[in-house]
Nucleic acid binder design. Structure first.
Lengths: 174, 174
DNA sequence: TTGATTGCAAAGCATTTGCATGCTA
DNA sequence: TAGCATGCAAATGCTTTGCAATCAA
């Protein structure tokens, strides 16, 4: 717990520094949003986060959550990701290893993964084209192990579960 | 030229078949949109395509272009891709090898590439997680060779050129 | 003739912006 | 006190939908 608190404090001070270096101001709303963002481990949408913040302080508006998440992203504490359902998700970025995502199109589960080999290959391919990469995004869609094994038994998708991410299959877009 | 025409005919008949198999109907609008889509080689947005179609027949509406592109995608002739500027692009899909994209964040150039090694590693990583992939998306952002070499000489980006894709840097999202 | 197709206008969504009021520093 | 921050409402931008008129089969 101590380690976790330490990290929280570190992230909070990074946010403070970022705010101050831009000549901006600390506010209760920003502190609350950061606090709640840090206390989750999910991939959250603006709506998810607004809902959580709203429970603690109903006066906080949607707009402030949008604006604060932008600040957190700038400060390097959050990262925006998209899984193909036209929603922007936010995940922790500070001291999180870079990773990519597998998205289950049946149950919506998101699996983070990292492959040094793939990263190295990407750099090589880029270099072959004289391309200087700054960042990238790799996403795999398909069935997670649970959904893959259950669909072996019952080909028709169970209609009960509400997937977190419902990817409407349109080409390979996202 | 003959080869190209052959391919056109093949694609047109695939579209016809798709239309008919769904009990739908061929129309002048659909034929025109397909014709124009096939005669381009760019990554086109709906607006680009609507513009081109509109020049030939000003009566064709935006909505029909949207609906027809969906049909083309279903039929396997088009593929939707996103490069990070919140626009949906369409590219040819029929008899085009699967490929991924590098996007120059300065001039907007999009470079298609394919790496069998990366594909194989993706499958391996997925398998390691018991994940059964159906499709994927890999995008690299950065500077193309031209922009990389010119920015060596002049660090400040030349303000003249209008990039096709202006990626607003927000985390690694798209 | 039947029912799919079209284009317009309106509706949806997620996100951003204008602006008067409220608050940090 | 100055001017950044907030929250609401309104505006955006892209995409979809409702619907009456039109057209393919």
């Amino acid at each position: 717990m101590a380690a976790r608190s330490d990290k929280f404090e570190k992230e909070k001070s990074i946010f403070s520094d970022h705010i101050q270096s831009l000549g901006l101001r600390r506010t209760n709303q920003r502190d609350l949003i950061l606090e709640i963002f840090l206390s989750t481990e999910e991939h959250l949408t603006i709506d998810d986060l607004h809902w959580l913040v709203h429970k603690k302080d109903p006066s906080v508006g949607h707009t402030t959550v949008y604006r604060t998440l932008k600040l957190l992203t700038e400060a390097g504490l959050a990262r925006e990701v998209r899984f193909g359902d036209n929603k922007t998700y936010y995940e922790h970025h500070f001291e999180h290893e870079h990773h990519d995502h597998m998205i289950c199109t049946q149950c919506g589960r998101v699996i983070e993964f990292f492959s040094a080999e793939i990263e190295a290959m990407q750099d090589k391919v880029a270099e072959d084209h004289g391309f200087v990469p700054t960042h990238h995004s790799l996403r795999l869609w398909g069935l997670c192990s649970d959904c893959a094994s259950s669909s072996e038994k019952q080909p028709a998708a169970p209609s009960g579960a509400q997937p977190r991410v419902r990817v409407v299959q349109k080409g390979h877009a996202a």
